[in-house]
């Protein structure tokens, strides 16, 4: 990997990090377990590694933004996650912030 490719990769990861959290929170307005959540995100064009997504779900739950429960489905115990009430408030704030940033970037691009 060249230096510029390396820099691009680092910047891309930084840019994606916050967006992925936002996408996960949006997607978990409806209940999911890890694998189906990953499939849904991928179907919407947002590929995310298992080793990134599953720990992220744990972290968001620790922060009180998600709630989870173990339940049997298709003869297998799975951990289902959904947005908590605190998570809903946080998601509204983050979406507002994301839209403001998006609009600003678009305005800056238009004025070039």
């Amino acid at each position: 990997m060249t230096v510029s490719q390396n820099i691009f990769e680092n910047l891309r990861l930084e840019l994606r990090r916050g967006c992925l959290t936002l996408a996960v929170l949006v997607q978990l307005r409806r209940e999911h377990y890890g694998y189906t959540l990953r499939k849904d995100l991928a179907a919407n064009g947002l590929d995310i590694d298992e080793s990134t997504l599953y720990p992220l779900l744990r972290r968001l739950e620790t922060q009180g933004l998600l709630v989870s429960e173990w339940r049997e489905e298709e003869k297998r115990n799975k951990r289902f996650y959904r947005l908590s009430s605190d998570g809903e408030v946080m998601l509204d704030q983050l979406l507002h912030e994301w839209q403001a940033i998006n609009e600003s970037i678009n305005r800056i691009l238009e004025t070039r």
Binding site: Y33, G34, Y35, T36, R38, K39, E50, Y54, R58, R76, N77, K78, R79
Partner: peptide, 16 residues
């Protein structure tokens, strides 16, 4: 707890 969750997700993926 983590391994149980990881196993459930990976087995589902494997089945798919």
């Amino acid at each position: 707890d983590i391994i149980a969750e990881l196993r459930a997700n990976m087995e589902a993926q494997l089945e798919d």
